[in-house]
Computed example of a mutant assay.
Amino acid sequence: MHDLSRRRAFWSAAAAFTPALFGNAAWSASAAPPKPYEFFALGDFTINLPAPDRKSRYLLVSVTLEVKSEYTQEFRDLAPRLKETVLRRLMQMSERNQLRPGESNPASVRENLYESLAEIKEHGLKSVVITRFLHS
């Protein structure tokens, strides 16, 4: 038997034997359990910060939502409204001096954003995740 014929015979036997060993469910993508939550990125938000020295200061925040899988499409449909809400809340926090270069707390920002977003769509929203938090 040639080397190529041996390889074909080996792989044919392996293909026939593997489903019996592991079961057919191991090979189907539909057998994977559905994910209860999905991550939905809202994007990056840049906010100007007040600075006493008149230098330009800003905060860059990347926001991702953790939502129940069955509500992901509803959150996608509301994305423009959700983004506007995040931007508005960050601007309010900046105007109130709650966001200061080097002193802002990402956990506080996350909590504020969650409260604002829950007013728009609370059902299905598990968490707000800050994936980037950079000061200039």
Results as ranks from 00 to 15, higher is better:
66 E>M: 12
37 Y>W: 13
25 A>M: 01
77 D>C: 05
14 A>W: 10
89 R>T: 12
56 S>T: 14
57 R>G: 03
37 Y>G: 09
32 A>I: 07
7 R>Y: 07
52 P>Y: 09
48 N>W: 02
92 Q>L: 12
53 D>F: 04
51 A>H: 06
4 L>R: 08
85 T>H: 02
43 G>K: 03
49 L>Q: 04
50 P>C: 00
83 K>Q: 14
92 Q>Y: 01
18 T>V: 12
18 T>N: 09
24 N>K: 13
34 P>A: 11
89 R>I: 02
38 E>W: 03
10 F>C: 06
11 W>D: 00
92 Q>G: 10
38 E>G: 11
7 R>S: 10
93 M>C: 07
43 G>F: 04
83 K>I: 05
64 T>S: 13
2 H>F: 05
27 W>C: 03
55 K>M: 11
43 G>T: 10
59 L>E: 08
88 R>L: 10
40 F>A: 11
40 F>E: 15
60 L>T: 09
77 D>A: 10
32 A>V: 14
67 V>N: 06
17 F>S: 15
37 Y>R: 12
28 S>L: 10
58 Y>E: 09
84 E>F: 03
86 V>Q: 05
43 G>M: 02
58 Y>Q: 13
17 F>T: 11
15 A>D: 03
16 A>I: 10
22 F>A: 15
64 T>L: 02
17 F>H: 12
93 M>T: 07
25 A>E: 05
35 K>L: 13
41 A>E: 12
86 V>D: 06
74 E>V: 12
49 L>A: 06
26 A>F: 00
72 T>S: 11
74 E>S: 11
33 P>Y: 00
63 V>Q: 07
4 L>V: 11
46 T>Y: 00
42 L>V: 04
28 S>F: 09
63 V>F: 09
35 K>M: 14
59 L>H: 06
50 P>W: 06
11 W>E: 08
16 A>H: 03
60 L>G: 05
91 M>E: 15
83 K>S: 08
54 R>Q: 13
47 I>T: 14
66 E>W: 09
42 L>H: 06
3 D>K: 09
85 T>D: 01
22 F>P: 00
52 P>I: 13
18 T>H: 07
47 I>D: 04
34 P>S: 04
